[in-house]
Computed example of a mutant assay.
Amino acid sequence: MVFDYFALSEAIAEVLRARQAGRAFAPERLAVPVPGGVLLAMPAADEAVAIVKNITVHPGNREHPVIQGEVLVVAAATGEKLAVLDAKELTARRTAAVSLLAARRLAPRPAGPLCVIGAGAQAKTHIEAFRQGLGVRDIRLVSRSRPRAEALAAALAGQGIAVRVLDEAAEAVADASLIVTVTTSPEPVFPDAVPADVFVAAVGSFTPHAAEVPASLVSRAALFVDDMASARVEAGDFLRAGVDWATVTALEDVPDAAPKQPSGPVVFKTVGHALFDLAAAKLACR
C-alpha cells in the first residue's frame, strides 16, 4: 500500500487550525542530554487523542538508527491506550508531510526539479512525499556516501520513482526549484548558487549551532518555520544568520487557500513539533 502523504499533510493543516482555535495543545519538548545524543519527550493532545513521543537522537550512530523511540497514543477522555507506534517511522513520515504542506503553500515552482541532500530515512520519505504530493519527476540525490545514495535510489526505483545520484551539491541545486536538506551536518551543505525562485526545506539540523543552509541565502529569502517558539531556540540555520524574527512567518499563519506566493527564494525551516506527531498518530489510528 502506498502511504498517503497528501492526507497526512492535510491532517497536519487541520491540527494547526485546531491549535489556533484553542482545541489542540502541546508544550515545548523536553530535551535531556545523554551520551552521544539527546532524549526528547513530546506530549500533545486535542479533544479526542493524547500522545507522548519519546525518542533518542544519536547523530553519530552507524550500527543503529539515528532516531529510535515510540509514541504512546491514548484516548483523551479516558486514558485508554489506543496504540504504541514506532517513532522513527512516524517521525520520518510526518516530517516529510510538513515539508510537503509548506511546499504546497509556498513553493513558486512546485513541480521541480527536486534536489535532496542526504540519504537517510528522511531523504526517502521526502522524495516519496514530493513525488506523490507535487508530482515531481526530475529528482536528484546527493550524499557524502555515494553507496548509500545509490542504495536509496535503487529502493525508490522499486517503487517506480526514478532518482539520479550526483556527487556534487553545486551541480544538483544549480537549476533546482525545490531543495530539501536532511543531513546531520553542522555546516551548509550546498552553495548559495541557486535559482531566484527556489524553495528550500531545511530539515536535518535542530540545534542552534548547526546550519545546513548558507547564511547568505537565508538573509535574502522569505523565511518560514513550522513552529515559531521552537524555531527561536533550535533553528540554527536562522539563528546563525542573525535573522530578524519579525520577518519570519509560522506555517500556521500561511492561508490554507490560495496563499500569496513570495517573490524570490523561500526558506522553510522545520525543527519538529509534537502537534505534527499528534496528527500522524490520529491518522494512523483511523
Rank of each mutant, 00 (worst) to 15 (best):
S185D: 15
M1W: 11
V225P: 08
E70I: 01
F224A: 05
A129D: 01
T183C: 07
D227Y: 14
E234S: 09
L275N: 06
A174N: 01
I117Y: 11
F199W: 04
A215V: 06
A257P: 06
F224D: 08
G60R: 15
I117G: 01
E10P: 11
E171A: 14
D175T: 15
V57G: 01
L178K: 03
M228K: 13
I127P: 12
D86M: 02
A170D: 05
A44E: 02
G135H: 00
S263D: 15
P27N: 08
V142L: 11
F224I: 08
L166E: 14
L283R: 10
R220Y: 12
A151M: 09
P59N: 04
V194D: 07
A107G: 11
L82H: 04
G60W: 04
M228W: 13
V15L: 02
A172T: 11
T184Y: 05
G135A: 13
D197T: 07
A174Y: 10
P195W: 06
R105D: 05
R140C: 03
E89L: 03
A77K: 02
L72E: 00
P27F: 13
A75P: 02
I12F: 02
L223F: 12
L134K: 01
V213Q: 08
V182P: 03
L82I: 12
D197Q: 09
I161S: 02
A257T: 15
E70K: 03
Q159S: 07
A274Y: 01
D167P: 02
L223K: 05
D227W: 14
A129T: 04
I67F: 05
I127Y: 12
G160D: 13
K124D: 11
A102D: 04
V142E: 10
L223N: 02
A279F: 00
S143F: 01
M42D: 02
R109G: 05
A174V: 14
Q132Y: 08
L100V: 03
D256N: 12
A11Q: 06
D192L: 14
L156N: 14
D226G: 06
A151Q: 15
G60N: 14
V233R: 15
